[in-house]
Design a protein around this nucleic acid. Structure first.
Lengths: 113, 113
DNA sequence: ATAATACTTAGGTCTTGACCTAAGTATCAC
DNA sequence: GTGATACTTAGGTCAAGACCTAAGTATTAT
């Protein structure tokens, strides 16, 4: 069981377009703060806050070497979101299948008469 | 391409534990406002706001018959989240596979010497 | 017709989120 | 060791989010 606070942080991190674009960039490969910030029309301190949100959610991790901080994707964390979504899907698909079966059953009965 | 605003709304809707619990409940089957609200220690108007957020994101839909409003899951919308996540995963997995290949390649070279 | 039920509307508070500017620190390049 | 670079810290604003209470409307039950 994933603590709910974890899912909160992960989905919240994903809810902002700037942060999603950062994740899209990092999916391609690691990058530094300035590289990540370059495409955005935003002051650096504001942008860095987004990186903090991402890091707090653990969707990414970073390391500083000298004065340069490099970020990379932390793939394990995405499972929190993926697993929650697929658990929902399994539940309702099972239910809808059951409903389909029921409809099919009704139709068979109908054609008997 | 899904407009980013859509992903914003979907992930934002998913970021709150009350709303996720509602979605868990609705995955099991449709339910009315009062049925959904019952487990939560929250005033009804506050709770109904959560339902509005979910409906705005189109993760759920509702219909009113008489004085009772019934909610149900709207499965298509979940694909927005699922697709975004799986697109990221594909990218970084391709990259990490490539890296694995590279390491393997290095090891082969090493054993030649 | 009256009362109870099932929401809805209309506010108000308090916290969090998303930005900003200005100034600071730690490295690196010369 | 001086200046440029790459962030960091420390504030401050303004909008959005998550709750609340009080009162309203539309249905249904008696």
């Amino acid at each position: 069981m994933v603590p709910p606070a974890t899912a909160d942080a992960v989905f919240h991190a994903l809810s902002n377009p700037t942060r999603r674009k950062v994740l899209e960039q990092l999916s391609v490969g690691p990058a530094t703060v300035s590289e990540l910030a370059a495409p955005f029309d935003m002051q650096l301190p504001s942008f860095v806050q987004h990186l903090s949100v991402l890091e707090d959610s653990r969707l990414v991790k970073s390391k500083k070497r000298g004065r340069v901080r490099t970020y990379e994707i932390s793939p394990e964390r995405f499972k929190v979101a993926e697993d929650w979504l697929s658990a929902r899907r399994e539940l309702w698909e099972a239910r809808l299948d059951q409903f389909d079966q029921y409809v099919k059953h009704l139709k068979e009965k109908e054609s008997e008469s």
